[in-house]
Computed example of a mutant assay.
Amino acid sequence: MRVVRGAASAHLPPCVLAIGNFDGLHLGHQALLRRLRADAETAGLACAVLTFEPHPRELFTPDAAPARLTSLREKIELLAASGVDYLIVQRFDRRFAAIEAESFRDDMVVRELNARQILIGDDFRFGRQRRGDVALLAAHPALQVSALSEIQHQDERISSTAVRAALANGEMEHAAALLGRAYSISGRVVGGDRIGRQLGFPTANIQLKHNRPPLLGIFVVEVHGLGGVRQAVASLGFRPTIRGGDLKPKLEVHLFDFDADIYRRHLRVDFLHKLRDEEKYPDLESLTAQIARDCAAARQWFAINRPL
């Protein structure tokens, strides 16, 4: 998959184009991408995706913007695995947001991206004041437009909002059902304060790309990127017992039966089950005892759900 920063630099062959934020790449997104590949193959065209960075709501209402399900790197990796030929990452700033809907359609979609067919969700809006819609796209004589309706799972609309709600409620299995896979966070192992090692539970500190993760707490996880799948327990949050708590969330992973230097390695952490919320303990001894209980609970979960 070729990744292009900005539509003006794309220089694409004639293509079928899907447009959207694709945050989380849930089952609804995956259905749209399957249709994208099928339509492109039938028409003998390339298949391309146009997405936006940052999320538009992060620009207009940063305090109320939804928590990211995927970083840009994670989104790129997921789209590459889905078989897309081209990914155009368009910077979403106030200048871009002020583009008239007709200009977005005529200049960007048709001229710069060379789109012949378009796939979008039926609620897609674009252009200044979100004035553009499916009908405006379809009014262009050179475009064939298909708007896909929502995908449902057990009478629930599959959406990024539904995934965020499941994660916030600690419903890992429900989130996985909407995503078609376990929810994961990827990042590089960075240096920490080594408090976990002092307590007898060394942790890998995973760099977070955003300060508002969609889930918080203590979790049973699997870790990829160390030569096979490693079982572990993870803490994602503000560490309220340590020095009064951190201002930014931290993801710390204690790998079972593992002792190696993995600094700077890039790992993927799959969240399988929530054990509990974060708590503040009166002292480090109490925290250490709770970590031991969390590890025992995680090992028991694996024994039941991932038997050897």
Rank of each mutant, 00 (worst) to 15 (best):
M108Y: 00
V110T: 10
E112K: 11
E112N: 08
L113S: 13
N114A: 14
A115V: 13
R116D: 06
Q117A: 14
I120L: 14
D122T: 08
D123C: 05
F124P: 07
R125A: 07
G127P: 07
R131C: 08
R131L: 10
L137K: 06
A138H: 03
A138N: 03
A142C: 04
S149Q: 10
E150C: 06
Q152A: 05
H153F: 09
E156W: 01
S160I: 01
T161G: 12
A162K: 05
V163W: 06
E171T: 00
E171P: 01
M172A: 15
A176G: 13
A177P: 02
S184A: 15
S186Q: 12
V190C: 15
V190T: 15
V190E: 15
G191W: 03
G192A: 04
R197K: 14
Q198W: 00
L199Q: 06
G200F: 03
T203L: 08
A204P: 11
Q207W: 01
L208Y: 07
K209E: 14
H210I: 00
P214E: 04
G217P: 02
E222T: 04
H224R: 13
G227F: 10
G228M: 04
A234G: 09
L236H: 07
G237T: 06
G237Q: 09
R239L: 03
R239A: 15
P240V: 04
P240A: 12
G245K: 08
G245V: 02
D246Q: 12
